[in-house]
Computed example of a mutant assay.
Amino acid sequence: MNFKVSSSALYSRLTLASKVLASKNVLPILDCFLFDVKDGAVTVTASDGDKYFITQVPVIEHDGEARFCISAKTIMDSIKELAEQPLSLGFNPETMGVVGQHSSGTFSLSGMDAAVYPLPVPPEEGCTTITLPAKVMLEGIGRCLFATANDQVRMAMNGIYMDIQPDCLVFASTDSRKLVKSTNTTIKSGIKAGIIIHKKVAAILKAVMSKDDEDISLSFDSQRAVMRADGFTLHFRLIEARYPNYNAVIPTDNPYKVELDRLALMGALKRTSVFCSQSTGMITLELANNTLRLKGSTDDFGSSAEEYLTCQYTQQPISVNFSCHFLLEIVSILECESVTLELAADVSRPGLIHPTVEDERDKVLMLLMPMKRGQ
């Protein structure tokens, strides 16, 4: 059986599919792509045993149907340097051999039996399904991914929580030191549910999705989910755990507030971070008399730096310590001209950072725990 595809179209889809592959697999077959040629397209499946990425490439022509597995690394290395051109692939089911032919040469490699390739288990019949714009999903993941944890005990914190309410959709993540809450009120699903998407799955979605994509469909039960988007389908397991009550830790009465130019603050943090302690990464923020002073120092080497930003602040002087790295991450992710920093009278309580001018339909709130000297 022979079929012909665009070399660049095939390589681009294989590149996306390869993002789910593990560096080490228990089953050797999972080092392969599953090719299924029929109905004018070749369907490519990649998996690490828990996640299954499925995508299609239109075929220019084919003279039959075939299912076979082929080494992911070998086929990608074989075609990645090809200029855009028709690529002919032939499969012999008796020898399991695959032969490729392009304008300047040929290559051959061994295939494997598709019958031994594991297939995804879809969510149970009667599962919950919601539809939302790809842009909403991508923005929620992009805002929350950095705040997920690496926790071997509290597994729920290793993912992003999708809190589906009848009149809104909330994305939340926390590692106990920082927290993100992103609320979109344009999504009115009419249902109440919640799922935890592992951060590895979220990272794959962030890499393969585009804000220009159309609506996506997300179906899930208590254990599994499947996302269908423009150009791919992703099956994955959910984190089966109870997510902590993220609203309970968000303060509602931080009295000290200051508005800051986001780019100016980001630049000051980057410059000061060079002089922050390598062990703690702590930076001190001091607010007084319409000025924000940022101070970083390394006790071991005696080096230090200070930055001053003009702002409108006439309340009681206050000083608080944060992780410079975490604060810089938060400020970098927020897409706005200015941010508002809200601090508590008790500097051991968390600070809040959010855009000064907020879209009522799409709000984002970042929480950051302060640091103590010697922490």
Score class of each variant (00 low, 15 high):
V98C: 00
D113W: 03
I130P: 07
D151I: 00
M112R: 15
V180M: 10
V116Q: 15
F171D: 02
M137H: 05
K135A: 14
T106Y: 12
K135V: 11
A115S: 15
F107K: 02
R154P: 11
T106M: 14
M155I: 12
T129Q: 13
Q101L: 12
G97C: 07
K181M: 09
F171E: 02
G111L: 02
N150M: 13
N150W: 08
R177S: 15
P123M: 04
P122T: 09
R154W: 06
A156D: 08
I141A: 03
F146R: 08
C127R: 09
A134T: 08
T148V: 06
V180F: 06
K135T: 13
L169N: 02
V98S: 01
V180L: 05
F107R: 00
P123V: 03
A114Q: 02
V98T: 01
P118K: 01
G111P: 05
M157V: 11
L109N: 06
L119E: 15
T131S: 13
T148G: 03
V153W: 04
S110E: 13
P122F: 06
R143F: 11
Y117C: 05
P122C: 08
E125H: 10
G100R: 00
R143D: 09
D151T: 03
A172E: 07
M162L: 13
R154A: 07
E124T: 13
T131F: 10
S103I: 09
Q152L: 13
C127Y: 04
K181A: 06
T183E: 08
A114F: 05
A149W: 04
G97S: 11
I141K: 00
S173I: 03
M137V: 03
V153Y: 09
A147D: 03
G100T: 00
G126S: 01
Y161V: 07
K178Q: 15
V153S: 13
A115W: 13
A114N: 02
D113P: 01
A134W: 00
R143I: 08
D163P: 01
N150I: 11
T148Q: 01
L132D: 01
P122K: 08
E124N: 10
Y161N: 14
S103D: 14
